[in-house]
């Protein structure tokens, strides 16, 4: 049946879709347009420029690219992204899914529930758990000291701040990748791999030559999703380290918050937010390019 001649249907469709478009426009497009505008102003949270802000052109962006803290935050963001999202969540999620594949039901449930527990825990609660876990009097020190590996307690959040937030984010987010890979791996027909096995392909070769290419689409989708999510991670880092000590865990989202809401530089903070948005778009395009898969 063709849609031609069904104008009534089109009108209904439009009516039904209109609220969605309106909502999207109001809560998504409009804020982005506003952000673009605010990023070109000297708006502050308080003070005379809170009410009478001026258009300053690309001043904020000029400052931004000369700002050493911005470079530090970019570097921290990329480190955090590479370690906690790509190496951590993506690879670990894939490995866990691979290990669980074809195992008994009870094993899959047990592992699945353990991993998913981290995922369903809200971000700030994850942060509180990890702060308790890593603090001087925390369980990590207690275990390591009990086993005789450490002589005295270490303040992990002070001495190894980036590693701390990376581990917390991996623990929190791996389940998402795992679930995606489980579904993808289950959809690979066993006959393909069996054929390869008969042809004499080793385990690694089968993984590299067959399994991975067949879940390529999932790898790409997952990469994009977790990259965007990780770029936006704020609560976890802010609650664990506040971006510190100093600037050691200040990622772009933390820096944006600090500039906009601690230093009251709303215009400048918005400029950082736009850069963050742009970074997400660029990385997504890169992934699609590398995997040669359209979304």
């Amino acid at each position: 049946m063709s849609n031609h001649g069904h104008r009534g249907n089109n009108a209904t469709a439009l009516t039904l879709i209109l609220p969605a478009i309106a909502l999207l426009g109001f809560f998504f497009v409009w804020p982005i347009v506003l952000s673009c505008y605010f990023s070109l102003t000297d708006m502050t949270l308080s003070g005379s420029r809170a009410v009478r802000y001026h258009f300053v052109g690309f001043e904020n962006f000029k400052h931004l690219f000369a700002d050493p803290l911005f470079r530090t935050s970019c570097a921290n963001t990329l480190i955090f992204l590479a370690l906690s999202a790509i190496i951590g969540q993506l690879a670990l999620g894939f490995i866990v899914a691979l290990i669980m594949r074809g195992k008994r039901r009870w094993f899959r449930s047990a592992v699945g529930i353990t991993v998913i527990a981290g995922w369903i825990t809200p971000e700030v609660i994850v942060a509180i758990c990890w702060v308790a876990f890593l603090s001087r009097e925390g369980s990590v020190n207690a275990m390591l000291m009990g086993a005789g590996i450490l002589e005295g307690p270490i303040s992990w959040l002070i001495s190894f701040p980036m590693a701390s937030v990376v581990f917390a984010n991996i623990w929190h987010g791996t389940a998402f990748s795992m679930i995606q890979f489980q579904a993808a791996l289950d959809s690979i027909p066993t006959s393909v791999e069996e054929a390869a096995e008969i042809d004499g392909a080793s385990g690694f070769r089968r993984l590299w030559g067959i399994t991975i290419p067949m879940v390529k689409g999932t790898i790409m989708t997952d990469s994009i999703l977790i990259t965007l999510k990780t770029l936006g991670v704020f609560g976890l880092i802010y609650a664990m380290t506040g971006g510190g000590p100093g600037t050691k865990t200040t990622t772009l989202s933390v820096y944006m918050y600090k500039q906009a809401f601690s230093s009251y530089q709303m215009g400048y903070g918005t400029a950082i937010a736009l850069v963050l948005l742009l970074l997400g778009v660029i990385l997504s395009l890169c992934y699609m390019r590398v995997s040669k898969t359209p979304l």
Partner: peptide, 12 residues
């Protein structure tokens, strides 16, 4: 505040 923390924690 930010600079003093960065200094005290050895970043600067």
């Amino acid at each position: 505040q930010a600079i003093v923390e960065e200094l005290a924690s050895g970043s600067l």
